[in-house]
């Protein structure tokens, strides 16, 4: 998306904000303008004013992947520069404001418009380039997380051998043994998975709010650490070693087009080597355009409390809840 378009959309947002200047907050419910191509920051947050919370989530976004004029200008008979009917424009904007999905994009015959198609290709290219990467070490230092490795040695073996990503290396086991407290109620672990950017962007907020939430619930939290190139079932190996009651694994999701920085939190009651998938629970889509990281941390605290109450997670928990 070119700079001019970003400015144009920002202008639209800002002018709308100026119509109703009374509520200015910096809450999570602001209007976000997403820029998929530039380096950071890739989301411009415009403080909330115009949008009331339509949903509990209420995170309206204007995405940059469609051009305002062209999206309604989809009738073949129309001249390319014709101004759209204001009513239709408003109706369409109401829809596109509700979702980051690529809607209201128009068509050329049954095919997408050229700019829509190229934007899609751009975003796919960015997602492909975002797979893997390296987590910012200063972030891990700041959060006091030490780093261990799985049996994975390189990217190719991560992909070819999922089983390696589910097991700790021998050195990792020694280090965890030496540094971690045994049998806490809650063990937090972090892994980059397929997106280091997910960790860079979300970990601090999720981690700190989760810690705070667990503290206020009076839960006993073990020694957290970072696992390089782990898969979800790495929690079983950790569980087998440290015997916590609950593990929460914060892990980078495979990059998508809307966000290459989405994080998931997997939770499991007493994960061990014989744990089955349906006993795990996941809170996915943690990123600034999905579940906001700070809220996710607090929410995870309440889920952990529930897991401890019922002594179960996943499908088992649903069954016990009755």
């Amino acid at each position: 998306m070119d700079q001019a378009m970003i400015e144009k959309i920002t202008e639209i947002v800002v002018s709308k904000l100026n119509d109703q200047p009374e509520e200015k907050t910096s809450s999570q419910e602001g209007v976000k303008v997403w820029d998929y191509n530039s380096e950071k920051p890739n989301v411009t947050q415009v403080s909330n004013g115009s949008r009331q919370a339509e949903e509990a989530e209420g995170k309206a976004k204007i995405s940059t992947f469609h051009t305002p004029e062209k999206q309604i200008d989809n009738k073949e008979t129309k001249a390319p520069k014709q101004q759209p009917d204001k009513e239709v424009w408003d109706d369409l904007k109401q829809l596109t404001n509700k979702t980051p999905a690529r809607i209201g994009v128009g068509r050329a015959g049954p095919r997408p418009k050229t700019n829509t198609w190229l934007q899609f290709r751009y975003d796919h290219a960015a997602a492909v380039d975002a797979v893997f990467g390296k987590v910012d070490e200063s972030l891990l230092e700041d959060l006091d997380l030490f780093t261990v490795k799985t049996k994975v040695t390189d990217k190719e073996s991560y992909i070819r051998r999922p089983d390696y990503g589910r097991r700790l290396s021998d050195e990792a086991k020694k280090e965890i043994e030496g540094r971690c407290r045994h049998a806490p109620q809650v063990q937090i672990i972090v892994s980059d998975g397929l997106s280091s950017k997910a960790i860079d962007e979300n970990l601090e907020d999720v981690y700190l709010s989760l810690q705070q939430s667990l503290k206020s619930l009076g839960l006993d939290v073990g020694t957290p650490f970072f696992i390089e190139k782990g898969r979800v079932a790495i929690m079983d190996d950790v569980g087998e070693m440290l015997k916590p009651e609950v593990i929460v694994l914060l892990v980078g999701e495979r990059p998508g087009l809307v966000s290459a920085e989405s994080m998931s939190a997997y939770l499991c009651y007493k994960p061990r080597l014989d744990t089955i998938e349906s006993d795990r629970m996941v809170v996915s889509n943690i990123h600034r355009g999905g579940i906001p990281p700070v809220e996710a941390g607090a929410y995870l605290g309440s889920v952990i409390e529930k897991i401890l109450d019922y002594e179960a997670s996943g499908v088992e928990l649903v069954k016990k809840e009755g």
Partner: peptide
């Protein structure tokens, strides 16, 4: 018509787009 936060309005918006094709 999936939506990253299960917003009903967001889901309906994608649903309308799909039906229109």
């Amino acid at each position: 018509p999936n939506h990253p936060t299960d917003s009903v309005e967001g889901m309906i918006a994608s649903l309308k787009e799909g039906l229109s094709y």
